[in-house]
Amino acid sequence: MVSRWFAFLPNLITIARLVLTPAIIAMITEARWQAAFLIFLVAGASDALDGWLAKTFNLQSELGAVLDPLADKALLISMYVTLAIMGQAPVWLAILIVSRDALIVGGVSVSWFVSRPIRVRPHIASKITTAVQLLLAALILGGAAYGFRLEALETLLIGSVAALTLASATVYLWVWVQHMRP
Score class of each variant (00 low, 15 high):
M86I: 02
M86Q: 08
G87T: 06
G87S: 07
G87N: 03
G87L: 02
Q88P: 00
Q88S: 11
Q88H: 10
A89M: 09
A89L: 07
P90Y: 00
P90S: 08
V91P: 05
V91H: 14
V91G: 04
W92F: 12
W92G: 03
A94D: 05
A94E: 05
I95L: 09
L96Y: 00
L96S: 04
I97K: 00
V98I: 04
V98F: 02
S99K: 00
S99F: 08
D101Q: 04
D101Y: 04
A102V: 05
L103R: 02
L103T: 02
I104R: 03
I104Y: 02
V105D: 01
G106V: 01
G107H: 01
V108R: 10
S109L: 12
W112G: 02
F113N: 07
F113Y: 14
V114A: 02
V114R: 08
S115V: 08
S115L: 11
R116G: 11
R116L: 10
R116E: 10
P117A: 09
I118C: 14
R119G: 08
R119P: 06
V120P: 12
V120I: 11
R121T: 09
R121D: 12
P122R: 00
P122Y: 01
P122D: 12
H123A: 14
I124A: 13
I124V: 11
A125I: 04
A125T: 09
K127G: 07
I128R: 12
T129K: 10
T129V: 03
T129S: 13
T129E: 14
Q133L: 15
L134P: 00
L134S: 02
L135H: 07
L135K: 00
L136W: 06
A137G: 11
A137Q: 08
A137H: 05
A138L: 10
L139E: 09
L139H: 07
L139M: 13
L141P: 01
G143D: 07
A145E: 13
A145S: 12
Y146I: 07
G147E: 10
F148A: 11
F148E: 09
F148P: 10
L150G: 13
L150D: 09
A152G: 13
L153K: 05
L153P: 09
E154F: 13
L156H: 15
L157F: 07
L157P: 10
G159D: 05
G159M: 09
G159F: 09
S160Q: 06
A162H: 05
A163H: 04
A163L: 14
L164C: 00
L164T: 02
